[in-house]
């Protein structure tokens, strides 16, 4: 069968684009929940902020790992 379409350039970039969807949604959810809880109960903002950073760090780690692995194994496949 003939090749109808081909992609040239870095497929790692496409991979990272896909990998960034999840963490993007995740970080959005974390901060959305924080803003909402602060709006409902402003006194609780101090209490919930540490957990926001924990959640943010764990989720953002995925996005950063995605970009790092994109670079590390960009040329091997």
């Amino acid at each position: 069968m003939d090749i109808v379409a081909a992609v040239s350039g870095s497929t790692a970039a496409i991979g990272y684009g896909l990998a960034a969807i999840g963490p993007g949604i995740g970080v959005g959810l974390v901060f959305a929940a924080y803003i909402q809880s602060t709006a409902r109960q402003p006194e609780s903002s101090r209490m919930t902020l540490p957990y926001v950073w924990i959640g943010f760090a764990v989720i953002e780690a995925l996005a950063l790992l995605g970009i790092a692995f994109g670079f590390i194994w960009a040329g091997t496949a």
Binding site: R46, M47, P50, Y51, W53, I54, F56, A57
Partner: peptide, 9 residues
């Protein structure tokens, strides 16, 4: 991050 920022005060 957990140790420096994520400890509830």
């Amino acid at each position: 991050v957990v140790r420096r920022l994520g400890t509830p005060t």
